[in-house]
């Protein structure tokens, strides 16, 4: 199999890159540079009230061919998420939406119950829905049943750069859910993005880790390489760990009649 065949399928669309870039905390010019270095073909963005006098148009930052993935940040309920998603669609960048419902302003953890409801409603409205969620197996199953296109569990609290704190639970989703699992939030270093990909995640999303790096463009390169390396390792099949000395015990199979 060539690497060209290893496409990330989301809805009807195939992507070569498995890096989803969050567009927060970048200037327009920086955004273009980061996109180029990251190789990302998908970028998220948010919907906010417009100020009179019109600031720069963020859409100018994205070259054609970049799939825009509006999020529903700011939504505290399913209904608000649906409202924001519809406004985003009205702004004219397609049917993809990253559902994000956060009802806790202290920890900013996603509300899985509302997220499932929002996903159900948005799938009914014809959206391609990628829900951001806390990695809970039942919620992930409910999202799959609701018609989500992928599931986006958090690795650690949003913006925390603390890595894959939820690795064991994300691994369960990788095993049990027949949808692309995309780690969103918390990834702080390329090594963590690589680990998520080795585990079998379909893609990784990052924003703060790059936006707050010393050299933003170089860090975008590092993430691109790490994600590709993790994916290649996953596809190659990990080798065995060397055992730390054998357990001394009498043979377990000596009773057999051969």
């Amino acid at each position: 199999m060539t690497s060209d065949e290893d496409a990330l399928m989301l809805g009807e669309q195939a992507f070569r890159s498995r890096f989803i870039l969050g567009s927060g905390k970048f200037s327009s010019e920086m955004m273009r540079t980061v996109l180029e270095h990251s190789g990302a073909e998908i970028a998220t963005l948010a919907v906010r009230r417009a100020n009179a006098g019109g600031a720069e148009n963020i859409l100018d930052s994205f070259p054609p061919g970049i799939r825009l993935l509006p999020n529903t940040s700011g939504a505290r309920s399913a209904e608000e998420a649906v409202r924001i998603a519809k406004l985003a669609r009205e702004l004219g960048c397609g049917d993809f939406v990253k559902v994000e419902v956060i009802g806790d302003s202290k920890y900013l953890l996603p509300d899985n119950t509302e997220t499932v409801r929002a996903t159900e409603m948005l799938v009914d409205e014809g959206f391609v829905v990628l829900p951001y969620m806390y990695p809970d197996l039942y919620a992930a199953r409910a999202l799959a049943r609701a018609g989500a296109t992928a599931v986006m569990p958090l690795g650690a609290p949003i913006g925390s750069n603390r890595g894959l704190l939820t690795a064991d639970f994300i691994r369960i989703l990788v095993e049990e859910i027949d949808l692309p699992i995309i780690v969103d939030a918390g990834i702080g270093r390329p090594s963590e993005a690589c680990a998520a990909m080795e585990m079998g995640c379909a893609a990784v999303m990052a924003n703060t880790a790059i936006a707050t790096a010393g050299d933003v463009a170089a860090m975008a390169d590092a993430f691109r390489l790490a994600i590709a390396a993790g994916r290649a390792a996953y596809r190659a099949g990990l080798g065995r760990k060397l055992e730390k000395g054998a357990e001394a015990s009498s043979p377990l199979t000596g009773f057999l009649e051969r």
């Binding site: 906010r48 417009a50 148009n57 963020i58 009205e90």
Partner: peptide, 27 residues
């Protein structure tokens, strides 16, 4: 939502509530 092609067809009233939104960077 007011469909984008039809802004000119909507005559505003004094008690209207408008939300005007656009895209910004976000993760």
């Amino acid at each position: 939502i007011v469909p984008r092609g039809s802004f000119a067809d909507v005559v505003l009233k004094a008690d209207d509530v408008l939300e005007i939104l656009h895209f910004v960077g976000g993760g």
